[in-house]
Amino acid sequence: MRRVGTHEPSINNWYKCLFFRKLSSLFNRYMIDIQSFKQYLLYEKRYSEHTIAAYSTDVRYTLDYVAQLYQITQLSQIEPFHLRSWVVDLMARKQGARSINRKISSIRTFFKYQIRRGVVSKDPTIKLRAVKVPRRLPNYLQEHEITFLDVSVVELSDLTEMRDILILKTLYACGLRRAELINLTVSSIDMEKRCLTVTGKGDKMRLVPISKSYAHEMIHYLAEREKALPPSEYLFMTDKGKKLYPKFVYNLVRKYLTRYSTTTQKGPHTLRHTFATHLSNRGADLNAIKDLLGHANLSATQIYTHNNIEKLKRAYAAHPKA
């Protein structure tokens, strides 16, 4: 008999039920080895830890959805219409297009892996199509909003402040992703050649030039750090001498951008957008910007040709009817 005051979970709130379960249905009942999938993503696809965690979660939630709604008991029973229903449900719950596309990518990668293992013989994701993503211009800082980085680390006395300013300068002056910054080591920087070796997505390495003043400030910072903290292979550390972590970097950037900028987006990637936009606005070659950012193709870089309305006005002024 159903107890008073209880209710059965509906399809629309199945996600909430997941958090109260002790076991994940498909992965535990049918012994699907999520660990081997993670190892595949790590060692063969060379995805980052963040991406691996996101893909694993996406796959688990997707399989739970089809198991509940369609009483699926084996991977081989999943058909394309099951997954199309899942995508429609995500859209109905106002999931963002980018988020949905990442989930589609996750489940597609998972089934390709299961086909390779021989667990399934056909790919139910074959008819899935990516959701159209609205074109969104990146947020960036105006040049006058970045002048707080004009301060030289050499003039500072506090080691924490030195580190914070250098982190911000590295993100802005080198256009790094947050994970790239976190994984920088002391050996990543070549003071003599004045360049930074950056390991990007898929373990792809690129060289990013650094200025003479940046190199001078980094030498000063590392010398001061050596006096106060135990040795470390990493270029930047927390106050306790540990490796940086994503939330640390995000909070640091947000603190400074809240203080000095009016932009709505205040995370580390905003400084990467600012790096690329300022280069584009000052006439840098688009292919050079692509290489500096570590983009795989030019289409990802073209968005930074977006906002320079003053440049467009100057070009338009050449028109005979302007």
Rank of each mutant, 00 (worst) to 15 (best):
H144Q: 15
H144Y: 12
I146W: 08
I146C: 11
I146P: 01
T147G: 00
T147Q: 11
L149N: 04
L149R: 09
D150K: 14
V151S: 12
V151D: 09
V151F: 09
S152T: 13
V154M: 15
E155Q: 15
L156D: 01
L156G: 02
S157R: 15
T160S: 14
E161I: 14
M162W: 08
M162D: 02
R163N: 03
D164G: 06
D164T: 10
D164R: 09
D164I: 04
I165F: 11
L166I: 05
L166D: 03
I167E: 01
L168P: 01
K169T: 00
T170I: 12
T170V: 09
T170E: 01
T170P: 05
A173H: 05
C174P: 00
G175T: 05
R177S: 01
R177D: 00
R177V: 01
R177N: 00
R178A: 01
R178I: 02
R178T: 05
A179R: 10
E180G: 07
L181K: 10
I182L: 12
N183P: 07
L184I: 09
V186G: 09
S187G: 11
S188K: 00
D190P: 00
M191Y: 15
K193W: 10
R194F: 02
R194C: 08
C195S: 06
L196N: 06
L196Q: 03
T197Y: 12
V198Y: 07
T199K: 15
G200S: 07
G200W: 07
K201V: 08
G202T: 12
L207I: 15
L207H: 05
V208T: 08
P209W: 05
P209A: 08
P209G: 04
I210E: 01
I210C: 02
I210F: 04
I210L: 06
S211Q: 05
K212T: 14
K212H: 15
S213T: 11
E217L: 04
E217R: 06
M218D: 03
H220C: 13
H220K: 14
L222Y: 08
E224D: 09
K227T: 11
K227Q: 14
K227R: 15
A228T: 09
P230A: 13
P230C: 08
S232Q: 04
E233F: 13
L235H: 05
F236E: 02
M237I: 15
M237K: 13
T238M: 11
D239F: 11
D239A: 14
G241C: 05
G241N: 06
K242G: 03
K242M: 07
K243A: 05
K243I: 12
L244D: 00
L244I: 05
P246I: 14
F248H: 15
F248N: 06
V249P: 02
V249Y: 02
Y250L: 09
N251W: 12
L252Q: 04
L252N: 03
L252A: 07
K255N: 11
K255A: 13
K255Y: 13
K255M: 12
Y256H: 09
L257F: 05
T258M: 10
T258G: 13
R259L: 14
Y260P: 10
Y260S: 06
Y260L: 04
T264L: 08
Q265T: 12
K266P: 01
K266G: 01
G267Y: 04
G267F: 03
G267A: 08
